[in-house]
Design a protein around this nucleic acid. Structure first.
Lengths: 165, 165
DNA sequence: GTACCTGCAAATGTTTTGCAGTACG
DNA sequence: CGTACTGCAAAACATTTGCAGGTAC
């Protein structure tokens, strides 16, 4: 998994710290670990992913704390929740107006491939605001079969734990 | 809840029957009830909604059968699963070109408001093709808090059976 | 000292599965 | 008759919550 630049991570980390402090909360050592691991991730990640990464640093971190922290980071506007394939919950770091929130979901392997399209992002916000809504969660589902699937009969990204559609 | 025309329901019903028959399965009496209730619904509905409606006709229908049948109807291409607010699973009847469109989901009342935006639709197709995918269905969901919610503290569309977030 | 934070374990809520009986063709 | 379908109950998961102890300021 690719990682965000140290500069970007520090930026986000500072934002989280001050946002928490502002509301009487603290940047604790557990939250530090969770933030570092979450913010360093460039792609979408699930609660389970984050827990695993965090536990590679501190084995005692519990799922409860991961869920609590994720909810807070979404509420602070640093993460956005998106709908993943097969009802997974996924989170994305929101660190710039160009944050890629569009994705293609492969019908075969279920994998989510990000689409970078700032224009689309702006458009989504505008659409929602037009009708009197403030967006909190955005999910674009493009159901598709990848070219490899059509040519070779199976998707190269398919994971072993997945069943045929 | 608005209902689909009898003609439309019959059409979908016939499709389901023949699709099942084709694969050695049957249109049973329980499936009839589930299909009728699902196909008559024009908006998004959850497994629980469908179970309730079905039980108003036959009280013995079980959740297991509802889930099994929903999965099959999705697989047959008659329903489409979309991600709802607060991690609800929602299903839509796929019976027209307007099925693959965008929606705003209200975080408070859970209602899904369609967004007509053919431009967005076209754009997604292009994006997906760029990356080697052939899109089949596209749906954009923006989960949001509506202005009424922010101003009055609750959403005018809220239904009685829903809890505060 | 007073909040806040955390892990644990239990509770929740939803979806799936094994199984025995039933119904359909 | 054999296969598919169904309800029931239990299992499997994912997520949330209560609480007691620990930590930061």
């Amino acid at each position: 998994m690719s990682r965000r630049s140290a500069q970007g991570v520090d930026d986000l980390f500072a934002k989280a710290s001050s946002a928490w402090k502002e509301q009487g909360s603290r940047m604790t050592s557990v939250r530090k670990i969770l933030c570092q691991e979450a913010f360093a991730t460039t792609g979408p990640f699930g609660p389970e992913d984050l827990l695993t990464k965090a536990r590679s640093i501190d084995k005692l971190i519990s799922p409860a704390t991961v869920y609590r922290t994720l909810a807070q980071l979404v509420q602070l506007g640093l993460l956005r929740e998106v709908a993943g394939p097969r009802n997974q919950r996924l989170f994305l770091v929101l660190d710039s107006p160009t944050a890629g929130i569009s994705h293609v979901l492969c019908s075969d392997c279920g994998q989510m491939i990000p689409l970078a399209d700032p224009c689309l992002h702006l458009r989504e916000g505008a659409l929602a605001r037009q009708q009197g809504f403030s967006p909190t969660k955005i999910s674009l589902q493009v159901e598709a079969r990848c070219d490899e699937w059509r040519e070779k009969g199976s998707c190269p990204r398919r994971r072993a734990d997945q069943d045929a559609p």
